[in-house]
């Protein structure tokens, strides 16, 4: 069984690792603290690909997801990296 790269699937949106220096600005814009953001597991298959690219991603980092939307063009969503429990 070959390994499956989920990021190449048409239904999986693009994930980016947010540079640490940009985090503050983004949280300011969202009017939220990190703990108020939706979470993404460090074990998420989407993160596996990012870890291969950027090296280890510590919990507490932000992930940006760009979704193509018919009405909004590109809609950005953010996720906070967490470890299980």
């Amino acid at each position: 069984m070959g390994s499956l790269n989920v990021m190449k699937h048409a239904l999986v949106p693009v994930h980016h690792l947010v540079p640490e220096e940009d985090e503050e600005e983004i949280l300011e814009k969202l009017d939220a603290r990190k703990d108020q953001l939706p979470k993404i597991l460090k074990a998420d298959p989407a993160l596996k690909q990012l870890i291969e690219k950027h090296g280890d991603i510590k919990k507490g980092r932000l992930i940006q997801i760009d979704r193509i939307s018919k009405t909004a063009g590109i809609s950005k969503a953010y996720r906070l990296v967490v470890e299980r429990e």
Binding site: L30, Q36, P38, A72
Partner: peptide, 18 residues
């Protein structure tokens, strides 16, 4: 933004397009 009473964000922009 769409939030719950605990003030966590459910959707960053209502319906993704507001």
């Amino acid at each position: 933004s769409v939030r719950n009473p605990a003030d966590t964000i459910i959707q960053f922009k209502y319906g993704e397009d507001g």
